[in-house]
Design a binder for these strands. Sequence first.
DNA 1: TTGTAAGCGTTATCAC
DNA 2: GTGATAACGCTTACAA
Lengths: 345, 345
Amino acid sequence: MKRPTIYDVAQRAGVSKSLVSLVLRGSPRVSEEKREAVLAAVAELDYTPSRLAAGLAGTRTRSIGVVVDDFANLWFAPALEGLRAAVAAGGYSLSVADTALNAHLSQDPIAVFRSLRVDGVVLAGEISAEAARQLAVPAVVLGTRAIEAARVPVIASDETAGGRLATAHLAELGHRRIACISGPGPSASAREAGYLAELAARGLGASLVRAEQTTEAAGAAAADAMLAELASAPGAEAPTAVFAVNDPLAVGAIGALRGQGFEVPRDVSVVGYDDSPIASYRLVSLTSVSGDVRELGEAAGADLVAMLEGEGEFPPSRRLAPRLVVRRSTAAPRAHRRSPGAGPV
Amino acid sequence: MKRPTIYDVAQRAGVSKSLVSLVLRGSPRVSEEKREAVLAAVAELDYTPSRLAAGLAGTRTRSIGVVVDDFANLWFAPALEGLRAAVAAGGYSLSVADTALNAHLSQDPIAVFRSLRVDGVVLAGEISAEAARQLAVPAVVLGTRAIEAARVPVIASDETAGGRLATAHLAELGHRRIACISGPGPSASAREAGYLAELAARGLGASLVRAEQTTEAAGAAAADAMLAELASAPGAEAPTAVFAVNDPLAVGAIGALRGQGFEVPRDVSVVGYDDSPIASYRLVSLTSVSGDVRELGEAAGADLVAMLEGEGEFPPSRRLAPRLVVRRSTAAPRAHRRSPGAGPV
DNA sequence: TTGTAAGCGTTATCAC
DNA sequence: GTGATAACGCTTACAA
């Protein structure tokens, strides 16, 4: 008992296979009569066209591949939803792969997509510049500024602006000693650059620690290290605010600070980045920078579809402005509250 | 400038296309000489075989589809990794889709996989029973017991056992009034059933609240509701321990309890479920039941490959035993610590 | 409007 | 070992 083919449908409906193909692809030049006959046959036979054959025969597969850097980065979930919404308009379907997913067996996701003949790909997350080159199909990069140079539009959140936003918020509250817990990777660098720029613009001094990874544990370790260094320095003063370049780092820092007797935000204010689910948890209530990831996904999807449908030129890179979600992890510094003009003790 | 085909490779290597196909599929009956010639031509031409054509012509596509209920469920990341490892052994590659991803436009992921002619599918998460039926290809269900009846093996964590484990842990610590915050869905039900079974086995009374969703906010609301109800009841006593059927619910409950002046674990112990990343955060340090999801994924992948390669019979359903990860959210009850035999005040 | 026929790039079945 | 030559199920001119 084999699967029904377009041929079976044609026979049952009493038409030719071409007609079936036309009906299925919604051609307007078919009689209502035949259309119904075809649709009926399709339903009766439970026919599902083979995308393999369609892709082989046609000029496109109407599928687009999405490469996600890591499925554990919850970041991409809303991005994917925005993408889907955007490409669905063009009749495309998404195929998702994660970089780590096939890394071991040299099962490079890009290679898989190539052999699948996807019409285009979306590089989501911190993709290596190398991956983007030698990419025979139209592509857009979503959410990082790593590969500015390649011939692909980059749809990213302006992470440097986000870093400035977070830092400015703390400065506006009255903080003068604002530390930063950064980490590895281009996103972290961009956010960190924003922190430095904003401090410079305000004439404040910087205090930077780089965590080994961008995890909660690394954030805790970085905060501990920062505190330890302060303790051993002669006249050093502890920061009254910390900007962590992502939420896990921030949560780790809060845990470490609390472990050392500092209450948040009473003694130290903390700002995170990404506005991940944990940030809104009551237990945490973390002020965080939000990249509006879903919209980023939508924009990327729309741009890719435009490249696929349109002739020639490709859309310009875009850098969307992030916004700050203020919660209960930030407040004015104590000294500031007691007597606005007073210097630190 | 078109893509190179197997024909181009054959011509360049001075052999027939059949030979090229044999070499690429690792046939042992080809001379070393020709093999090298073919491989060289492949490299020079940067040839990538078309999976579309291969799937069309061959008897299988060597691809398997994974349907995830929701990408935002961090749960599936390790499961996917286990899956990948297991199916890679058989030379299969994974294609992932999320139920919500295409739900809107009747872009049912199962339909997409059908048209892609995947060799098999993995249903991960809480899949509807309906989805599993009418599934023309071999399938396994990963991580839920929802569709016991269908003709697919179910590889799941024994969630009822997990519920018992959590409850037993609290009882062993000396707790007598153990409440449960449950939620919607089959997983929650199974965990809840374990809670009830363990209490019954120990002759303890149950106190159950069902949250509207399985989110942190819902958990907080449920805990608040529970406390409010207790306050209005005449001689009711507050529970000294709470088992929440997943981690977000548990974190929400902790937040709510703290808001009402209860410290965890001093006044109330809390156990969660899933051992998600947040559970290990210092700020939370939540005792939680772990399903060893990666291993679950491996088992499911191995079973599916066995079904695909093997002839006939399919592997039995399996229910893997979960384990408890004890952290700092659980401790002996206060009264118990002061005087072991004393009743509650 | 509908039918005919020629591919699309592989695998599979034979011969050689 | 190696090479022809049919499928595979569809799209797409081109005819009718």
